[in-house]
Design a protein around this nucleic acid. Structure first.
Lengths: 155, 155
DNA sequence: CTTAGTTGTAATCATAACAGTTACAACTTT
DNA sequence: AAAGTTGTAACTGTTATGATTACAACTAAG
């Protein structure tokens, strides 16, 4: 089972907001055109990012902007904002191990720590990359051209 | 989105096979009683573990046994055997980033490496724990009592 | 004040994955 | 031949995802 695309959609959304900052109004429709998904998906994503304190969205007029320094937003922040594990761990566990069996009784004590450590390793790696890192790579690769974006490119 | 419970079910299955080795025949029905799931789920899990070369299953007579030294089976082996990402990565990516947009064009080159690194960190941590490690903890916690298992404990 | 554009959210729909369950052919030992 | 087991197919129910439509609330511009 894969981790949902909400995470990469959210990163893409943030990159749009930063990349086009000051030149274009980043509405949900515009971002949806760059990401290639329905605008409602972007609105929900922006809602999650807003709840996490990463962006602020202009009601009515439209357009989103960063609420924090891009150097202080890590991929882990985005991951946690969008992959709502909400109290749950990344790994799901079968729910009814038999308490009358030694293995069933001990599988949680024996395995939980390992699963938590693996999740922690993933999250630690995500924490090492910031939005600033990513936007610098985009800027380096996209060159000095003015930031523009034709919508409806591949639908 | 969580990683499916197939992984922990498979680990539980392997622990049963090792723990009851030589004392009880570990059929899919028996293992299902310890894990707390339907026997067909165990058969499918055993099929995946067999395909990965981790266990061998006796057709007809019933019962499964390890095909390798427990010290040489890591959680990563089990993870790859059961979470059939089959060519795919752990993170799923939105499928239609707009190639006419700089961000849409560069989101893959910029982000793919980070996602791969995060997945590698998770897998590297899983690789550090062997089935031998886990079974030793079970043995230590379960004490010297003879290995038995009453089925149907919590269903 | 009206209009246009946008956000936030609800409601539906289709699809896919998962897990439970039943059923049954094929196989092995007794 | 009989009993027990595996491997697999088929069907069901549940959950998550993503697409889509619709609409009330909001803001700025004219």
């Amino acid at each position: 089972m894969q981790i949902s695309s909400r995470f990469t959609i959210a990163v893409h959304t943030l990159l749009c907001i930063v990349y086009f900052d000051g030149t274009l109004k980043t509405t949900s429709n515009f971002i949806a055109g760059s990401v290639g998904v329905n605008p409602v998906i972007i609105r929900k994503t922006l809602g999650q990012l807003k709840d996490a304190g990463l962006v602020s969205v202009e009601a009515g007029v439209g357009g989103a902007s960063l609420a924090k320094d891009p150097a202080s937003i890590t991929l882990l922040d985005v991951f946690r904002a969008t992959e709502s594990l909400g109290g749950d761990t990344l790994f799901s566990f079968h729910e009814r191990p038999n308490p009358k069996c030694p293995v069933g009784r001990l599988v949680h004590p024996v395995l939980d720590g390992e699963l938590a450590a693996a999740q922690a390793a993933l999250e630690e790696r995500l924490r090492q990359t910031t939005l600033q890192d990513l936007i610098e790579r985009v800027a380096a690769l996209s060159g000095p051209a003015a930031p523009t974006c034709e919508e409806g490119g591949s639908a």
